[in-house]
Structure formats: structure tokens, C-alpha cells
Design a protein around this nucleic acid. Sequence first.
DNA 1: CATGAATGAGTTTTCATTCAT
DNA 2: CATGAATGAAAACTCATTCAT
Lengths: 196, 196, 196, 196
Amino acid sequence: MTKEITDKRSAILKAAMELIAENGFHGAPTAMIAVRAGVGTGTIYRYFADKDVLIREVHRELEERMNPILMVRNAAERSLKERFQHFFFGLMRFLLDNPLEFKFLEQFYNSPYGVAMRRDKILNQKASDQRCDTVKNLFEQGIAEGMIKDLPLPILFALFFGTLASVARDHTLGFIELNDDLIYRTAEASWDAIKR
Amino acid sequence: MTKEITDKRSAILKAAMELIAENGFHGAPTAMIAVRAGVGTGTIYRYFADKDVLIREVHRELEERMNPILMVRNAAERSLKERFQHFFFGLMRFLLDNPLEFKFLEQFYNSPYGVAMRRDKILNQKASDQRCDTVKNLFEQGIAEGMIKDLPLPILFALFFGTLASVARDHTLGFIELNDDLIYRTAEASWDAIKR
Amino acid sequence: MTKEITDKRSAILKAAMELIAENGFHGAPTAMIAVRAGVGTGTIYRYFADKDVLIREVHRELEERMNPILMVRNAAERSLKERFQHFFFGLMRFLLDNPLEFKFLEQFYNSPYGVAMRRDKILNQKASDQRCDTVKNLFEQGIAEGMIKDLPLPILFALFFGTLASVARDHTLGFIELNDDLIYRTAEASWDAIKR
Amino acid sequence: MTKEITDKRSAILKAAMELIAENGFHGAPTAMIAVRAGVGTGTIYRYFADKDVLIREVHRELEERMNPILMVRNAAERSLKERFQHFFFGLMRFLLDNPLEFKFLEQFYNSPYGVAMRRDKILNQKASDQRCDTVKNLFEQGIAEGMIKDLPLPILFALFFGTLASVARDHTLGFIELNDDLIYRTAEASWDAIKR
DNA sequence: CATGAATGAGTTTTCATTCAT
DNA sequence: CATGAATGAAAACTCATTCAT
């Protein structure tokens, strides 16, 4: 029973994410989300107060799925560059392997929804678990050690994630065909930008 | 008289651009555009066949304003790096000095309107005037001369524009306060990514 | 429950038919149809994809109501003239008893909607049920037997239905007051036109 | 000068008639009428108080052009049947030779405009010129002489004009190809309906 | 007189949200 | 809890009419 309720909730979240990714916010009316989720229209409002709440929830759950990729344990044993490359590959892989999720995120961040929270997400990752490695930790440590340019975090982040997202987008749109070698060389270039 | 007619057209374009920048496509109904432009609803349709046409026209005129920034004469006399920095500064200045225009462009490219054309705009700048320098020329020449990494153009472009847009966005959203020194150092970092 | 759902659909069809009959297509905006039907505007679009579909559906249902009048069994036992008079009376009765329906049909056939199909309806009645008599059958048989003038079907049809519609219209508009005797004598005159 | 004013008036009337005939009332906005007439939009309102007035004026002028066809001198010298046939042919010729005018009239009579006046036009032709022959005269005289069935005028009229219009419509729509022989035989049939 | 740019009321249609079952 | 029929506010667009030039 509890299982079924959760199933419905998940189905709605998945349907919303897919439709927004495929057609944009315009192409995802509640009726259509309900059909794809296999539930009644009204049912959406049993699980989410609002369409806004639903969409923000899609984003929140996506974030949770991405956190493990951006928080890695046992970082101390590796070099800064290795850790950087691990993040770059991990995130790129996630975006390429989950193109719908990626398209949803792009829609989300370029809409009134995502303006307030924006890159808080990744940059201000709560150091809830101090033993976990984050991009933020990486940059701060690198600056402290003199390995990484002493630039404000948002700029370092832009050199890393701005590039990464742009390349991933071009792949999604078919402008380039990425392979491991290209991703590797792109990560190298991005590291060149960041390293001192 | 001719002046006033043009004024009305311009007022509509400006109102549309501002509202879309501020509120996204959802927040720019024709009625609101008309009010902000100080004209009647019907007047919009005297100047633009369609709301689509209006929006594409906003984009087209913006593009025309940006072209001179991205096409510069007498490039031969300068080094590749100088030319790169010129582009980086010019584009960054335009985006920071025209935050509404920048926000509009972000909305535009992340919507059905701009998906097809996307960065064609900047990447495939028509070499209509052979004496003009473009980012594309810069990259191709740099690769040929062995000064720039031999990566596919979209990736070089991502290292340049992906970073630039991300930084500009953070500034617009108030996450960093850019100044000429920071822009300079960001351009340096971006050049480090690209140069061999 | 099923009853009520059907009721709403019927109410919309009826309201549309009445308003179009009374005021023409111009005088039947969806908002007015909804008010007269006692439903919300949006409800119309739950039952009909389009205003066009709604109007064509009004026509289709009207046609279905008229079919039994124009298709009669056991024709063989009666003379051609009797059968002719039966059709004439039947159709006239229907038009006089349903003046709104008649006015709607006139609007419909004189509009982009009905131009293509026009009187196909009545002339080319599908002989779906071979045992049923139709006006077309009547004319063809009459010609073959030498009882009816050997004129093209559309002309025979005009002598029958052109007259009938004109008379019915005059009655509806109050120019004559028809009674059974007048209808009978009109049918006689129409038969004189057709019979050899 | 006066010439030019009249020219403009005529051009507007002609343009309105043609557009309504070709596209129905929906397809004849004032702007389009003005373009086809080669005048400014506002100019229409110098000659006609209203769009309604314009349309009614198109009808009135058409009527004036048709009157001579329906009012013929020297009728006394011909037989009733000859006169009937003369009307039938004359009117049919006019409708077939002026298909746009015919289509306009059909639009007009099936719209709120034409309901009040309807067949007054032809039936109640003012006996302004007693020496002129009219269909009405013909019928009244025929009844008095016992040559024509003693039916109410609207019914006789329906037997004549209802048939005629229906046949003309079928020709216009391409359902039959009329020629003089067919028109003659149709007139004969119509006469059979009317004659005692 | 002639013009046509400007207007806004009116039209069709969509869709988030509610609520009776 | 689940449903989906019903709703009406809001959106894009049209067009008869006016009025400054």
C-alpha cells in the first residue's frame, strides 16, 4: 500500500521530468503528465500542493541523485588533478548518460524556478559530511596549496562547469560526437584553465 | 513622423525584450508587452505578423548589435592572444553592460525558438567581410599555427563562451562583483585552457 | 450519471444549433453557446475538439434524425406518386416542425462548412440498406419506367427540393401560413413538374 | 472629380461584392475590400456609414441591375407561357453569366442582412410602372385567366424561383453542366408545375 | 476629401485547479 | 485515497471603426 503510493508519486515525478525535458515547460500540462504517469489528473494534487511544487520536487530529487557523484570519499589519497578529473568525468558521464535529466536541468535553470537557487546547489554543497569531497573543497584546498589560481569560486566554477555544460549540450544537440578521448582532452584543457 | 512610426516598433521590441528577460516567456503576454510599450494590443500585430516573429525579431536585432563586437578589423597586426582577449573583453562588456539583453538571450537559446540555430550565430559567423576577424577565424588560425589546442571547434568554443556566459550570469545574479581586473584574469585562465 | 454527461453534450449541441439558427454563424460565439447550454466555456472543448467539429457534429446529428424520414421501407407496395408524396410530406413536416433545425441547415449549407458536401447528403444517400427507399431510388426507377421526365438527377432534385425548401422558408418567415391542404397541393404541383 | 468620387464608390462596391462572393462574409474584412478597391481603408467610411450599409448597398444595386430582366414591356403580345419562359431564361442567364453576383446573393439571403427583406424584392415588385411585366403580374393574370394553378403567390414563386436557384447553384458548383436545351427543359418542367 | 496607423472589444482556445463521486 | 469532468481566467489574435495628418 505504502509502496503503491510511493509508486504513484515516482511515476508523476518521472513523467513530469520527461515531458519537460522533451517539450519544455509549455509542452507539459498536468493532464499530459497524469496520462504518462498512468494516474488521474486529480491525483497529482494529492502528492503535490501545486504544479510549482511538483517541478521543484523533480529538481530536488535530481539533485539528490547527483550528489554522490560530486561527493566522493577517500579523496585524500589522490592528487588534486586526479580528483578534478574524477569530478569532470563523473559529471559529464551523468549528463551524457541521462540526457533527459540534463535537458530538464537546462530548462529548469533557465526559468523563473531556478533563478533563486541556481548554482548554490553545487557550489555551496553543505559540508554536512566533512569526510566527503566536493568541488568546492577541491577548489579551496587547491587555492590554499597554491596549485589552483586564486580566483573567486564562482569563476573557478565557471571554468569547470560552464565549459562542461556547454560541451555536454553540444553533444546532446548533435554538434559533436563525444568519446572518452575527447572528454579526457576537454578535462585537461579545463584543468589548464584552473591550475596555476 | 517616420520617426514616430519607428518609435512604436522599437518600443514594442524593447518592451518584449525586457519582459522576457525579467519574467521569462511565460511572463510576457502580448497584453503586457503592449502596456509597457505604451501601445494598443492590436498595434503589435501591425508591426509583427506573430508573437513568434516579434520574438525572433528581438533576437535578430540583438544579434546585429553584437556583430561589430565579434567582428573586428585589422586583426593581422595583433597577436592571437591579444585578439582572444579583445573578444573576451568585448563580449563580456556587452553582456555586463546589457544585462537584460543577456538574460533575454539565455531565455531565447533555451527555448524552442533558439534550439535549432543555437550558437551557429557566433560559431558560424558568415565571413561576409573577409577583412573582418571572428572567433572562428581566430581558432582556426591558432590551430593551424600550432598555438591553440587541436580540439574540435565546439569544444574550444565551450572553453571560451561556456566560461564567459557562466561568469556573466553569476555577475548578473549578484554572486560575484566583476571588475576589469577579474575579467582580465578570467580571460587569462580561459586562454590557458585553449592555448597549447 | 451517464445521463448527465450526455445531457451536457446535448445541451451544447442544442445551444449551438439554436444560436446559429437564430443569429447566423456570426451570432454564436463559444461564450454565448456555453451560457445558453448552462456550462463553462471550457466544457465545450471537453466534448468537441474544435468549434468546427462542434458545428459539423450538429449537422451530422441533424442528418441522422432526418434519415428515417427519407428512407422508408416497403416502398414496393406503393405507386411512384404515393411514394413521392410521402417524401414531400415527410420532409416538409420535419422542416416545419423543426424551424430552428431548418434555419440551421440553411446557414450550414451556405457556408464554407457545407459547400463541399452540399446536397450529396440527400441525393447520394448511401443505399446502405437496400430494402430502404430513397428519393434517388424513386427518381431512377421513375425514369426507367417512363413515369418521370428523363432529366439529370440534380434537376429533378431541384424541382422537388428547391421548391420544398423555398416554401418551407416562406412559412418560417411568416410569408404564408401552410396547412395540410396547401402542402398537399404544393406536392401535387411539384409532381406535375416531375412526372412525364 | 465627381467622376472620380463615383469611381471610388463603385470600386468599393465591386470589391465588396467579389470578396463576399468568393470567400463569404468572413473572408471580406474592410481592409481587404479597400486593397482590392485600390483605396484607403478610411475611404470606405466616406461613402458608406457602416459596413452594414455598404453590404446592403451592394445588394440594392444588384437588385437594380436585375429589375430590367424581371420587368419587360409589351408583354400583352405574348402568351403566358412565352412570358414565363422569357423570365425563366432571362433570370437563369443572369445567374449563370454573373456567378459572383449569384454567389453574393446566396450569401446575402442566408445572413441576418437578407432575412427582413427576403423575397419582397421580386415578389412585391412595386408596380411603379404599370406597363411593365413582372413575374407577379404574370402569376396574377394567369390565375385570373384560369391558366395557372390557384395557389398562393409565394408557392407559385417557390415552384419557379426555388427550382431555378437550385439548378443554378448546382451548375455553379459543377454538379451539372447546363446548356440551352437543359435550361429549356427545366423551364418546361417548372411550367408544368405551375400551369393548371 | 483621402488616407492608413492605431485601437480595443470580442473571438477561439488552453490548462491549472477543484470537488463530487 | 483516486478520479476525471467541469471550470473560468488568461492567452493569442482579428477587425470594424476612428482620427490626425
